[in-house]
Design a protein around this nucleic acid. Structure first.
Lengths: 192, 192, 192, 192
DNA sequence: GATGAATGAGCGTTCATTCAT
DNA sequence: TATGAATGAACGCTCATTCAT
């Protein structure tokens, strides 16, 4: 049994994916969440104010997906491929929502919250890069915190482009992924 | 004196930047454009249908900015720095709109148009990379068309992060730019 | 053919009388006015903001009623009786609305407007008293402007009391009127 | 420590004064009363049904104020002045509420209750006038019960006008009071 | 008695769209 | 073409009321 707030967040994700954010009505969300219209307003003042809570869930989903995909003990390049795979998958599955989160939501009101919300994902990637740096697999001049953000930005925007331009052709995804991998290998200065 | 259509497009850009797309009303646009409410519908069927026209203007602005910044005859690394500078500047100035355009706008209806509209910018970057590739400045394994998109995605997302996370500290911009340059130099495999 | 604003004001008066102000919905008003719901908001921002316009109409109605009732050339006491009759009639017919207007509308926002709106009525009574004062019918110590307000306050509150306490008994009205007349005769110091 | 019912009544007075009756929500009242939302309904069925209890408190306040002001053994004219002073003070302090009570509240449902509630005040003034009548200070033709209502109506409407039209100028109050006193002296036919 | 989270009917308000001028 | 007053369907939001605890 979920509590009401969680119900709203999950219902919102579901409806946003189906109808897009602009076309989603609060009445759609409460119908899916199976709560009364007024109850929504006990937890959120508006449709957009659900976004930070959604972002939190999305970051969790992403981290979980990445962790599940990455094979403990594999070579760094393999792991890199797996990270890219995971991000591509999540990005394609939830692209409308991620696009909004990533773009900073159009409105600047919640921006400082994203920082906090995204932090765990940046941390994970930082840690991932740091290990590689320590074992000499990637170049020593890497600044891991900053690069983690560039890394995620690069992979996510690449994933979005696949959807954006080549949504019909599945093989485009793998070509694009390969390209990103290649670019990252050079960018990180992998020595294996 | 602008014609009515241009007035609408420029007014829309102005209002979208101020209020965000969701909160912008057609009445806001016509007020700024100084035309009658009904006149809008003589040129555009809906608020979102103005977006491709906006994108066109934005791409023009971007290409112009890049061209103006890049110094003919300079070394590739210098030019690279200049391209990054120009994109950072444009991205920061118009980030709300670019974010939306780039993210595909949440609604999938106009996606195919973006492809066409963005094409000139991708072309310019492709050409830029191609010259470098021909003269052996960057690694030969680069696929210029695909990389041009990764390139733009990387730089734009980096620029967005500066705005997103460190809006107050101006020096963050230059650090972030340096990091991107470093990453690109490795990613492109520059040999100078 | 009335213009839309007048239609709204008259419809509002009608509905307020029937249902009371609190229970009146804007949808009731527009139904009677025979206009679209949205049209209301082109002229008034809220239900209560119609009140000043209503007050204006009510003051007109009152002055007209008084003028019609008062017999040119009659003795002052007769005229006084007629003024009282007219105010009682109007007050009883429109008591819910007048009560609100007179009480200052509960909210203090429109108070300064009442001053302007009521002015014509105060003027008329002032003039009425002034003539009587000039011809020596009422005591010389009367300050006509101030007394006109006391006069109206006295007669209106008396009329309200008839409605309030004795709404069923019609003869109460005439007794109350007689009492007011007596009180006013003394109060004004009539010498006839 | 007040009991819950008293808490509600006093909270309602406070909120009604601040926001007006129409804009007052039950949730505002319970917040001030520091009780739970549901508790309200254990004592009152609706917002307006609190009004008679408020009126009772107001009448008590008024009678107390008048009694405190009036100096035992003073001449009638002096007492009259003191009564006027007291009513002016109370009316100005609680004008929004008194206006509503006095005007019959727009809704006719509780009217008969006001009669009962106001009775003590009318009685007191009747008694006050009766004594003056017995001692021959005021004219013999006075009908004390009816006149008590006219008396109160006159003084209260005068007090409201001070507030309404001249809220800034404090000396207006004393001029208005003097005018009322003069008017009453004549109206009652004082012979001193 | 007391609570306050939950309810949902109902209302205010918006704003894209139309069309007579 | 251009206008902008008028429209009314659609939606956000409120808030009196309930009821399980």
């Amino acid at each position: 049994m979920m509590n009401k707030k969680e119900k709203i967040v999950h219902a919102a994700i579901e409806v946003f994916r189906e109808k897009g954010i602009e076309k989603t009505k609060i009445s759609d969300i409460v119908k899916i969440a199976n709560i009364a219209q007024g109850t929504f307003y006990l937890y959120f003042p508006s449709k957009l104010s659900v976004m930070p809570a959604i972002a939190e869930v999305m970051v969790e989903k992403t981290i979980t997906a990445v962790k599940n995909e990455v094979q403990e003990g594999a070579a760094f390049t393999v792991k890199l491929t797996q990270v890219i795979d995971a991000i591509f998958k999540i990005t394609c599955d939830y692209r409308e929502i991620l696009a909004l989160i990533y773009a900073g939501m159009g409105s600047t009101e919640h921006i400082k919250e994203w920082e906090t919300v995204y932090e765990p994902f940046y941390s994970w990637i930082s840690q991932f890069l740091n290990e590689a740096k320590s074992s000499g697999v990637i170049r020593d001049s890497i600044h891991v915190e900053r690069t983690s953000k560039l890394f995620i930005g690069l992979v996510e925007s690449a994933a979005e482009q696949v959807y954006l331009y080549d949504s019909k052709q599945d093989d485009q995804a793998s070509i694009q992924k390969a390209e990103v991998l290649e670019f990252l290998k050079y960018g990180l200065g992998i020595q294996e």
